[in-house]
């Protein structure tokens, strides 16, 4: 009974994660994006804790706390302060074709379900149905990085992808071994440090964070 309830709660959270991935695709305000990203991290942490409780895999509590600390507080805070320091908190990205992007996103979700179908049949974990959502989140993050031209948005797409990967690990196998999860978190921290430096470099060199201005390195004919 507890299991089915937990599985249902987890499915709900998975739906919320997917919803926030779509919201990231549609949002044009920079600050709005940071907020949605924090919410996605929150759903992820909650879902990890629920799975940890229901499955009795207690190391998931640590992962959940790590996610909460990193993705709900630390990374959004870093982004928040960077955005304020760079005075771009009012920026609204000029994105065309949001409806098309959303439709493409739906195709990617269907594709993810199709791709993970054989794994769902093999697995007997209660979280098996959410693996497709995890892969879809990865794909949507990828789509966001491809379609957006703002440096901060691209980084948010990257981080959303990472959320999807983390969710994939909890869905497929109740999380990766601890040493791997810690290592991935460390890499993420270093990446945060690096993109922080980058925002400043790009901003001072190009006077904006629009990556379309960086188009000098083309193949010469």
């Amino acid at each position: 009974m507890a299991h089915t309830l937990a599985a249902q709660i987890n499915s709900l959270l998975a739906a919320l994660i997917l919803l926030s991935a779509f919201a990231l695709l549609a949002q044009r305000k920079i600050m709005g994006l940071v907020h949605i990203f924090a919410w996605q991290g929150f759903f992820l942490a909650l879902s990890t804790a629920v799975i940890g409780f229901a499955s009795g895999e207690h190391h998931l509590y640590i992962s959940s706390l790590l996610t909460l600390g990193m993705k709900v507080f630390l990374l959004p805070y870093i982004l928040y302060s960077l955005v304020h320091k760079l005075k771009i908190h009012r920026d609204i990205e000029a994105v065309v074709n949001i409806p098309t992007t959303m439709l493409l996103g739906i195709v990617l979700v269907v594709f993810s379900y199709h791709l993970t179908a054989p794994i769902r049949e093999l697995s007997n974990l209660m979280t098996r149905s959410t693996l497709a959502v995890a892969l879809a989140t990865v794909m949507l993050g990828l789509l966001m990085m491809v379609t957006r031209r703002h440096a901060v948005t691209q980084i948010l797409g990257f981080l959303a992808m990472e959320n999807g990967l983390f969710f994939a690990a909890t869905s497929a196998t109740y999380g990766m071994p601890m040493v791997v999860e810690l290592g991935v978190a460390l890499d993420l921290l270093i990446a945060a440090f690096i993109f922080g430096i980058f925002f400043f470099h790009i901003n001072t060199t190009f006077d904006s964070l629009d990556v379309d201005q960086m188009a000098k390195l083309k193949e010469t004919d």
Binding site: V138, L165, A169, M176, I202, L217
Partner: peptide, 24 residues
């Protein structure tokens, strides 16, 4: 800076796929 940003983003995307592969 452009080259490094491209490197960071494209390799970040690429290597994320490898992590999914590792999960599988």
């Amino acid at each position: 800076i452009e080259a490094a940003w491209k490197y960071f983003i494209l390799c970040g995307v690429g290597i994320a796929q490898a992590l999914f592969g590792t999960v599988l």
